[in-house]
């Protein structure tokens, strides 16, 4: 039974890996990688690593792949084939060379357990409880470094992907928010924050009454901004 499961999972994993490389559309490549990851989780289960298999499905096939799908949808576009690229010939050759070399290393390694079914099974091997205990005792340093690395990566991603041009359009800017049409004396945030004072100053400057909501929003916003600039200058 475990042989059958192994061959199904191994073939699915290898087919998924080939699909990642061969698919022209990045979206299908991501889906092939999901297939590959799920079948790899089955292999982990056969190796009695239940917690690693669960983490593989939840974290990898769930969260990380969703991130990939978002970015593929954002960037999009299949790559066009360009002829005359030397790497298209040399790359597969190099990959085959690496595979042969790894197999030679595997056959030549004098690992005593390579022809066995593994060590004798202990109850509770690979359980979340034991993994968690090991993380907080023997491997505490690796655990802390991993958390720090995640923090650095999150900050790095925000810094890399942020918008650099500042406020490009007027929408959502302060002036438009202030200039919005609203009834007077209704306890709006603008009154509380003192923009009412600005209106009163404008009124004094005009020598007449300045009804809130009388002028067009755009003009009023421009007037407010101009008067604020004037205050800063003074």
């Amino acid at each position: 039974m475990s042989e059958v499961l192994f061959f199904i999972a191994a073939i699915a994993a290898i087919v998924g890996a080939v699909g990642v490389v061969a698919m022209r559309n990045p979206f299908y490549a991501v889906l092939a990688l999901v297939c590959h990851l799920v079948s790899l989780a089955a292999l982990f289960l056969l190796l009695r690593a239940e917690f690693v298999a669960a983490a593989q499905v939840v974290v990898y096939a769930g969260a990380v792949m969703v991130l990939y799908v978002f970015v593929v949808a954002y960037v999009g576009g299949a790559e066009e084939i360009r002829s005359g690229n030397a790497m298209r010939v040399l790359g597969p050759l190099f990959a085959v060379a690496v595979a042969i070399e790894l197999c030679i290393a595997l056959l030549g390694s004098a690992l005593s357990g390579i022809n066995s079914q593994g060590a004798a099974y202990k109850p509770g091997f690979g359980e979340p409880a034991r993994i968690g205990k090991l993380f907080l005792t023997d491997y505490l340093f690796a655990f802390e470094v991993a958390s720090l690395l995640l923090l650095v990566a999150a900050i790095g991603a925000i810094v890399l992907a942020r918008r650099r041009r500042g406020l490009e359009d007027d929408d959502g800017s302060i002036a438009r928010v202030i200039g919005e049409r609203r009834p007077s004396y209704t306890g709006t945030m603008a009154e509380g924050a003192g923009t009412r004072q600005v209106y009163q100053e404008i009124e004094a400057g005009h020598g007449g009454s300045f009804e809130i909501g009388s002028a067009e929003p755009k003009e009023r916003a421009a007037a407010v901004v101009a008067s604020e600039d004037g205050e800063d200058g003074a």
Binding site: A17, V21, P92, F94, A95, V96, A99
Partner: peptide, 8 residues
């Protein structure tokens, strides 16, 4: 095998 597919 999976590793060398990735390299390729």
């Amino acid at each position: 095998i999976i590793f060398s597919i990735g390299v390729g």
